[in-house]
């Protein structure tokens, strides 16, 4: 069991005041900022990131396992021309990735997209046709977006390196 020192002499306290100010000054001169300048800069997410999900319609065998394992009832099965296919409601999806993991034929895939925006709730429901396309939103900015990748650095914590 430990105890911290109770009565400290005033000189030590003064030293600690100076140390605190000194540490602050150190970071004033050499700041370690990790701010990502979104949307001018956009992060490329690592492989395996559980982003938005995409369906491969031709691969799907309609086994309904994805709909069964979905914890949020986001995935539902619909019958299209006699074939059962999943559709997803992104208003409910919690991005747990269970459906991708359980699909026996790998008809579902995690994409690295996570920053989508919709104007109304109906757009959040993806029918099998929309679900089986790569989700791509037109850029809202005129300037090109700088793609960066986060890396852990021993000195600065996180640094963003341009993605090639």
């Amino acid at each position: 069991m430990k105890e911290y020192p109770k009565k400290e002499n005033p000189f030590k306290l003064l030293g600690q005041h100076l140390e605190a100010i000194g540490t602050g000054l150190k970071y004033l001169v050499k700041p370690t900022r990790i701010t990502l300048m979104y949307p001018e800069e956009s992060m490329v997410l690592p492989t395996g990131y559980r982003g938005m999900i995409r369906l491969y319609k031709d691969v799907c065998i309609g086994c309904t396992l994805c709909a069964m394992v979905c914890p949020a009832d986001a995935m539902k099965m619909v019958t299209e021309e006699g074939k059962k296919l999943p559709m997803i409601n992104y208003g409910r999806c919690v991005f747990c990735g269970f459906c991708v993991d359980i699909c026996p034929v790998d008809a579902l895939k995690e994409t690295g997209v996570h920053d989508a925006a919709f104007t109304n709730r109906r757009e959040l429901i993806f029918d099998p046709d929309k679900f089986s396309q790569d989700f791509d939103q037109p850029p809202t900015m005129d300037k090109p977006v700088r793609k960066v990748r986060a890396k852990i650095d021993e000195k600065k914590g996180i640094v963003y390196e341009p993605d090639d």
Partner: peptide, 26 residues
Amino acid sequence: EMTEKAIKYTRRKLNDWKGIFVNNPN
């Protein structure tokens, strides 16, 4: 490798934490 770097970074940063926060007389 990421974790090793993160440990080095956090060890270094904890010293500064002590300087500015934990040992700060305020």
